[in-house]
């Protein structure tokens, strides 16, 4: 009798654990397809040898342009290079009609965050990889997932549901910024990074 109660209780605990750690993350995030595939490695690899800042540029006033516009792609891809499926999509759907590619941005911060790339990349000389990981050498795009409640890209929280990153670059939540700033003894105020 006593034993049965304990077993029941434990099975309740186990059921919760299973749901919480496996079913819940699956339900919390919605997978969204990128408009097309993109191979960073082809661009940055030995053959082309492009650096990050050749496409991800700064403007004159120091703001970061982020993902390049279609005009940048057109500079090289005005006609299809090679015969891959994504090359076809690029040229037919975007370059030719001169339409911007509606990329889903893994590292998109909310409107209330102010992140000056200039201060980090130019002044503090932080490498792109420190925050973005080896994205620049990837040959396929990772799966883009969006949190159904908060609307954030999964990469902001980090791929791991526990919030404990398995790679140093994983996760782009505020505590990540705070930690780095603390290490560098920056006099911090909320308004430094919030707008």
């Amino acid at each position: 009798m006593r034993c049965k109660g304990l077993i029941l209780m434990l099975s309740g605990v186990l059921a919760s654990l299973a749901i919480g750690w496996f079913a819940f993350p699956a339900a919390l995030y919605r997978t969204e397809a990128q408009p097309m595939q993109f191979n960073h490695a082809v661009h940055t690899g030995e053959q082309n040898g492009m650096t990050c800042d050749m496409c991800h540029e700064f403007t004159e006033n120091g703001s970061f342009k982020g993902i390049p516009t279609i005009a940048k792609c057109t500079e090289c891809h005005s006609a299809a290079i090679g015969s891959t499926e994504s090359e076809k999509v690029l040229v037919e759907q975007f370059v030719t009609p001169h339409k911007e590619i509606p990329w889903k941005v893994y590292s998109r911060q909310p409107d209330n965050a102010y992140f000056p790339h200039a201060a980090h990349v130019k002044r503090a000389e932080i490498k792109c990889e420190e925050c973005h990981g080896p994205h620049g050498s990837s040959s396929t795009l990772p799966v883009y997932q969006v949190n159904r409640i908060s609307g954030y890209s999964r990469d902001i929280w980090g791929r791991n549901i526990s919030g404990l990153p398995s790679h140093p670059w994983e996760g782009m939540k505020m505590d990540r910024c705070v930690r780095c700033h603390a290490e560098r003894h920056r006099d911090d105020s909320c308004l430094d990074c919030h707008k």
């Binding site: 029941l8 209780m9 309740g12 059921a15 919760s16 749901i19 819940f24």
Partner: peptide, 15 residues
């Protein structure tokens, strides 16, 4: 009892 256990367990999940 089962419900109590699952509530207890849920506290140790991210939910």
């Amino acid at each position: 009892t089962f419900a109590g256990g699952s509530i207890l367990g849920a506290l140790f999940t991210p939910i």
